[in-house]
């Protein structure tokens, strides 16, 4: 059984973001990069499935520049068997449809019984790529899963809805699932597995070889939020800060009365 998991490399969200010179994305200089948080759950679930099904083979796919290989190595160290790096230094200019088309083009003749993606990427936050890949491949998709199981070709899970309610859903494989935070507990790669990952296959395919499609979305501008909060910003020594905060709580609230 072949399994695919799609991951994206994103900046650490605690970074200080600056808009790039063109004004259509953030400046990628001086950022720390990591695996999209949602995709950590996708990788973990894919690895668990691979461990469950004898003879399963798990591919991790990532579209991006040379830099993303570092993140792919983490997925390999978590237990993916092989990596497919779709090389595209300008992947940020592609919209979710263009990204999904590349993934679908790669996957269309590989017989993947299951494809895992994250619910959304932290930088773009679109929650589109997974659903689009499924539609392009005419696969059923279960989205926003916080619980997953696979038994004899039957995929079942729980979707997370607003307010913490869940719905129970199922479909037949081949299928695609999108993973929500909390689906499982992503493992930390162990040192031996990190060493082993170095010897795993990591194939690079230029995006141009995968019949790239034009973006359907145009970015007009990227800007910091206009309305900065009207609140007070306090800095300084913790003890002095604490005194000022207590003073403020006395003046502005009734909780210390």
């Amino acid at each position: 059984m072949n399994i695919l998991v799609c991951i994206k490399q994103v900046p650490d969200m605690e970074s200080r973001f600056k808009v790039n010179a063109v004004g259509d994305w953030y400046d990628t200089a001086d950022l720390a990069w990591r695996m999209n948080e949602y995709d950590e759950y996708a990788v973990e679930q894919a690895v668990q499935l691979k461990e469950q099904v004898a003879g399963a083979d798990l591919t991790v796919l990532c579209i991006g520049g040379e830099r993303v290989k570092e993140t792919m190595k983490k997925a390999l160290a978590m237990g993916c068997d092989r990596g497919v790096h779709i090389l595209d230094e300008d992947s940020y200019q592609k919209d979710p449809y263009a990204i999904a088309s590349l993934i679908a083009e790669f996957a269309k003749d590989k017989n993947f019984a299951l494809i895992f993606t994250g619910l959304q990427s932290q930088d773009r936050g679109s929650a589109q790529v997974g659903g689009m890949v499924a539609e392009l491949l005419s696969l059923p998709s279960l989205t926003t899963l916080v619980d997953f199981s696979y038994v004899d070709g039957n995929v079942s899970g729980k979707r997370e809805l607003e307010g913490g309610t869940r719905s129970r859903v199922s479909c037949s494989a081949p299928a695609l699932v999108t993973c929500q935070l909390g689906l499982n507990t992503p493992r930390y790669p162990t040192l031996p597995n990190i060493m082993k990952a170095k010897r795993k296959e990591l194939l690079s395919i230029p995006a141009a070889d995968l019949n790239p499609q034009a973006a359907r979305l145009q970015t007009l501008s990227m800007t910091p939020p206009e309305k900065k909060g009207s609140g007070l910003i306090l800095e300084g020594d913790p003890a002095e800060l604490a005194d000022r905060l207590i003073q403020l709580l006395k003046e502005k609230t009734t909780v210390l009365a």
């Binding site: 953030y26 936050g125 034009a214 145009q218 970015t219 007009l220 939020p225």
Partner: peptide, 14 residues
């Protein structure tokens, strides 16, 4: 929004 609401993006369908 983009980047956990730290940025905003103005977009348009083509």
């Amino acid at each position: 929004p983009a980047c956990n609401s730290k940025l905003r993006r103005q977009v348009k369908p083509t």
